[in-house]
């Protein structure tokens, strides 16, 4: 009996996010306002010579990016209460850039990550006004691993990366990192997991919005 009680106490005391996998997914205080339509477009990169424009069509991943937005629209209409819907429009204010990294692996010239985002909040509010997303094709991680590989795995990986980046403007933040394989995260539990391996070969990122993610929106 004592043993059973002891175990019960331990179950109550041990947090469910031990091992650095947080569910619900960690959230921030801002997001797209509920119920709004959000338009996005594919933009041409003009800027510093450290990068060269490829574009989503140039890399052949337009449909993979659209699919990620569609997955979020579906989740927002059916699995969480946000009702935010994403539309691809040539005049879309939220822009997607796809560039190649011209000096892979060089600190300061290679961001070292698969993608990044810039989002704008209306000052004094928690409402997202705009989000840009950039995919850094050819980038190499700090550990020396290429983030991307061409071939069959590229499209699904792009979708997973986009699910993650769009998740930031939906009010989610990165899952914490701990020790162990793939940052100690529970594989597939959240779109806010980190990528693990070239084209996420370890399958750390899920292929759709997860219940842990919806629970935070």
């Amino acid at each position: 009996m004592k043993k059973i009680l002891c175990c019960l106490v331990m179950v109550i005391l041990i947090p469910d996010n031990i091992g650095m996998a947080a569910c619900p997914t960690p959230a921030v205080t801002y997001s797209w306002p509920h119920g709004i339509p959000v338009t996005y477009s594919f933009a041409t990169y003009v800027g510093a010579p450290a990068f060269t424009h490829i574009g989503a069509s140039g890399l052949g991943v337009t449909s993979d990016i659209d699919y990620a937005y569609n997955l979020w629209s579906y989740a927002n209409q059916n699995q969480n209460s946000s009702n935010v819907t994403f539309y691809n429009s040539t005049t879309g204010f939220n822009r997607i850039y796809v560039v190649s990294v011209n000096s892979p692996g060089v600190p300061g010239l290679d961001p070292g990550v698969a993608a990044n985002y810039t989002l704008g909040l209306f000052s004094g509010t928690s409402n997202v006004a705009v989000q840009d997303i950039t995919l850094y094709y050819g980038s190499i991680s700090i550990g020396g691993l290429p983030n991307y590989s061409s071939g069959a795995g590229l499209g699904p990986f792009i979708t997973k990366v986009m699910l993650h980046e769009v998740g930031h403007a939906m009010g989610l933040t990165d899952q914490p990192l701990g020790s162990g394989a793939c940052g100690g995260q529970t594989a597939g539990q959240s779109v806010m997991n980190a990528t693990c391996g070239t084209n996420d070969s370890a399958g750390n990122l899920p292929t759709s919005v997860q219940s842990c993610d919806n629970a935070s929106i």
Partner: peptide, 11 residues
Amino acid sequence: VIRGDPPANVM
């Protein structure tokens, strides 16, 4: 305006 800092490839 917030520019993110995504975690690197964790493998």
